[in-house]
Simulated assay, not measured.
Amino acid sequence: MEKPAAADGPQPGDLRLVIEQDSKTGTYVYKTVDRRTGDILQQFPREDVLRFKQAEHYDPGEVFDGLT
């Protein structure tokens, strides 16, 4: 008998929340990590957002201004 596809992925008990502070921006980074593999499954804010914040000429609102 074949296992359901969901059984192949991480189960709730396999997940761990890691909260770190980015040393360059001071922003807190929230990561969902698979305990079995160490893979980062989700990250907020995403890495590209952190790179924007580190850019010399970045101003809040450049990526999304909320008006459109």
Rank of each mutant, 00 (worst) to 15 (best):
T32W: 11
F44M: 05
R36F: 08
V49I: 07
D39W: 09
M1P: 14
D22L: 04
K31P: 08
R16W: 15
H57M: 12
G13Y: 03
H57W: 14
Y58C: 04
L15R: 03
Y28Q: 13
T27H: 03
Q11M: 08
P60K: 00
V49M: 08
K3Y: 06
G66F: 05
P12L: 06
L17H: 08
L17C: 03
I40F: 07
K24N: 10
L41R: 02
Y58G: 06
T27S: 05
Y28R: 14
L17V: 00
H57D: 15
L67G: 12
A55Q: 12
V33N: 06
R46T: 09
A55P: 06
R35F: 01
D14A: 03
Q54N: 00
G61F: 08
K53W: 13
R51S: 10
D39Q: 12
D39C: 10
V63F: 04
S23Q: 11
Q54T: 06
L17Q: 05
E2W: 01
V49E: 12
G26Y: 04
V63Y: 10
R16E: 15
A5R: 13
P45Y: 06
V29M: 03
E56F: 10
R51K: 06
P4T: 07
R16K: 07
P60N: 08
D48Y: 11
E2G: 04
G66D: 11
L50W: 00
K3F: 15
R46H: 13
Q43P: 08
D14F: 02
Q54L: 09
P12H: 08
R35T: 09
I19N: 12
K53C: 02
F64H: 02
V18G: 01
Y28M: 13
V18C: 09
E47F: 10
A55T: 11
V33K: 01
T27N: 09
Q11Y: 09
D39T: 01
K31M: 05
R51H: 05
I40G: 12
T37A: 08
S23P: 14
K53I: 12
P10C: 03
F44T: 07
T32L: 14
R35S: 06
M1Y: 07
V63C: 10
G61I: 09
D34H: 07
F64A: 04
D8E: 10
L41A: 00
S23R: 15
S23V: 15
A55F: 13
E47V: 02
G66M: 11
T25Q: 14
L17S: 04
E56R: 02
P45H: 01
R46M: 07
